[in-house]
Design a binder for these strands. Structure first.
Length: 586
RNA sequence: GCGCCCGUAGCUCAGCUGGAUAGAGUACCGGCUUCCGAAGCCGGGUGUCACAGGUUCGAAUCCUGUCGGGCGCGCCA
């Protein structure tokens, strides 16, 4: 509809140019938008305002000319000039009838399009270190990333969902050491647990598994484990140096194979937990990409060599640096430490180079906002490698702060005091969690009100929308109980009977759905969907209260049934994109 | 100190990429069911769009500065 009106205006401009009423060198950018206020019609264009300057004429005069040159007809009932020079289009009552048939025909596909057809896009999200269970911060990234991916898929993109598994590196070694020390404890050994170790209960569980499977075979005297290790923080030392010392000792004592065994016990247990958690949350991946695999395949070395070859590295203090400042980063970055170990950044360069090599047209990273400082260096590295950093979009998701009983819930990962995603899901349910997480745009700090999400009341927006869906189903149940049968053919043929304002309003909003999906997808703004669905549900509830659907008059009854079933379909489709269920009864 | 994000109704937030009189929910008050689910609907008012400049036909939206809040500035990941 928008396109049709824009075409009418474009034609009008051409006609005026042909008769020299407008300069021939105008390059009009014809915009037609939905009006905010129905008093301004259904659609409006600001064309006359934008042409005023280049055409050196008053906006209203141009609008007059445009309207007189306009070849209207069909569904356009009336055209008005208003305000400073807006051209307002009023459509006739039948203009929206097509929407009902479209929805009936497309069903679950209504709202989908082929806008991104032929384009491959990768969305990487969550990618939390497998050193502990997912917490509520990860939950937002999961819900947001999944929604962005699903939206892009809905408009035709070929979407690849990926989780980057940091299964290498120091944090994982700390986990392995933590598991081993808990294992020793379960062997009956007294020891003081490092301040920098992972303290969560899940580490005990993994230690217990190791103990169950291997008995006391892996045990070493505690004195040997801590032999020569620098003092821990509580003892006046450095907790980082302490844990590194412990890791080195454990590695030596266990040997490569047994160390790997303990390491993998931690990794697989936690990764399994994460996968399970996400799956239950309705978040599925196409690929779990292993950092270790990247290292093993020497991709990291290759990337480092490529950087060296590009001439953007130098050695200093025994370390290899990437000259990130050449490409706008604040400072240069170490990629190989003086001890010969590559940094996390080195892996990340290789990983991102790998992503681009895989040929995606666009690569999207969803990161926690605390990593924002990391964006320039990754883009700098890609530029230095000769890749196009514009192909990478980094979407930063701000933190979610939980409130329970009006009080902020405090969290700290390392000490193990945090609310896990699993606990959150158990408390408020998957539907409320998915919905609440994407209600805000990603750059907004979010206050997550647990009490509200949990409440089964009209305060809760999730229930409000779901209720509208269940209510439609309920009407159809009633229909049968009253001995009627739905006749879609008659309903679609009798749409002219839908003359009420509420019906008109509902149809208009149903027709907006594909535009909402498109805008939400392209702008990576899933929050548009819950806002739209809330409005749509409101239109429905209002209609429901104002008019009876199951009436004697079969033409009117069937027409109304088509309208409400179309509404049900759109709500189901919208909730589906958010990973929220559309219940038949509540 | 430098960088990124945010500042809109008492509270939580939208505001369709620069358009018309800035909107929802919530809270508060009042009304609506012999009838398809009241988990619903209707009515009632609230704004120095943080502040100050600038850009133009037109700014909550863009640019600059100030103030306030969050986050980040490791040979950690």
């Amino acid at each position: 509809m928008k396109e049709q009106l824009a075409q009418l205006l474009t034609d009008a401009v051409a006609r005026l140019q042909a008769s020299d009423a407008l300069p021939a060198d105008l390059a009009p950018n014809v915009m037609v938008e939905r009006t905010r206020d129905r008093a301004h019609g259904d659609f409006a264009s600001n064309l006359a305002l934008t042409l005023a300057k280049p055409a050196r004429a008053k906006p209203r005069d141009i609008a007059e000319q445009l309207v007189s040159a306009l070849d209207t007809g069909g569904t356009v009932e009336k055209v008005e000039i208003a305000g400073p020079g807006f051209i307002n289009f009023f459509l006739g009552p039948t203009a929206w009838h097509g929407v009902i048939a479209d929805i009936a025909q497309a069903g679950a596909d209504y709202g989908r399009s082929q806008l991104g057809a032929g384009q491959r896009v990768q969305v990487e999200f969550v990618s939390a270190n497998p050193t502990g269970p997912l917490h509520v911060g990860h939950g937002r990234g999961a819900a947001y990333g999944a929604a962005v991916a699903d939206l892009l898929a809905a408009i035709g993109y070929d979407v690849h969902r990926e989780y980057y598994v940091n299964d290498a590196g120091r944090q994982m070694d700390i986990l392995a050491a933590s598991v081993y020390l808990r294992y020793l404890d379960l062997c009956g050994v007294e020891l003081s647990f490092p301040a920098n170790g992972y303290q969560g209960d899940y580490v005990w569980d993994i230690g217990a598994t190791v103990h169950r499977e291997h008995g006391e075979r892996l045990q070493h005297p505690v004195a040997e484990v801590f032999a020569g290790v620098p003092p821990d923080e509580p003892a006046g030392g450095d907790k980082e140096a302490h844990i590194d010392g412990v890791i080195a000792r454990i590695r030596d004592l266990l040997g490569a194979d047994d160390y790997r065994l303990v390491f993998d016990a931690g990794l697989t247990a936690i990764l399994h937990n994460i996968r399970q958690d996400l799956k239950e949350f309705g978040v599925e991946y196409d690929e779990w990409f292993s950092e270790r695999a990247l290292t093993d395949s020497s991709a990291v070395e290759v990337a480092i060599e490529r950087l060296k070859a590009s001439g953007h590295t130098y050695e200093d203090n025994g370390a290899l640096w990437f000259r990130a400042t050449d490409y706008g980063d604040e400072k240069d970055r170490v990629i190989v430490r003086d001890n010969g170990q590559t940094t996390y950044f080195a892996s990340d360069i290789a990983y991102h180079a790998n992503k681009l090599e895989r040929g995606y047209d666009r690569v999207i990273d969803v990161w926690g906002a605390d990593h924002h400082g990391y964006v320039p260096r990754v883009k700098a590295a890609l530029t230095a490698l000769g890749d196009d950093p514009e192909r990478l979009d980094v979407l930063l998701v701000q933190f979610a702060v939980l409130y329970r009983g009006g009080v902020k819930v405090q969290m700290s990962t390392r000490s193990g005091e945090f609310v896990t995603l699993r606990e959150l899901r158990r408390e408020v349910g998957n539907d409320a969690a998915r919905y609440f997480y994407v209600m805000r745009k990603c750059e907004q700090h979010m206050d997550f009100d647990l009490d509200l999400a949990r409440s089964q009341s009209n305060d809760n927006p999730v229930y409000y929308v779901q209720y509208a869906h269940a209510r439609v189903i309920s009407v159809f149940r009633q229909l049968e109980e009253k001995g009627y049968r739905r006749d879609s053919a008659e309903g679609l043929a009798q749409l002219t009977r839908l003359t009420e304002d509420h019906e008109q309003e509902l149809m208009i909003n149903l027709s907006r759905y594909p535009e909402i999906v498109e805008a939400a997808a392209i702008n990576h703004e899933p929050h548009q969907l819950p806002h739209y669905l809330r409005e749509l549900a409101n239109d429905f509830h209002t209609y429901y209260n104002a008019h009876t659907f199951i009436v004697e008059d079969s033409a009117l009854r069937n027409a109304r049934l088509e309208l409400i079933d179309a509404t049900r379909q759109v709500i189901a489709n919208g909730l589906g994109l958010l990973g929220v269920s559309a219940p038949e009864s509540m």
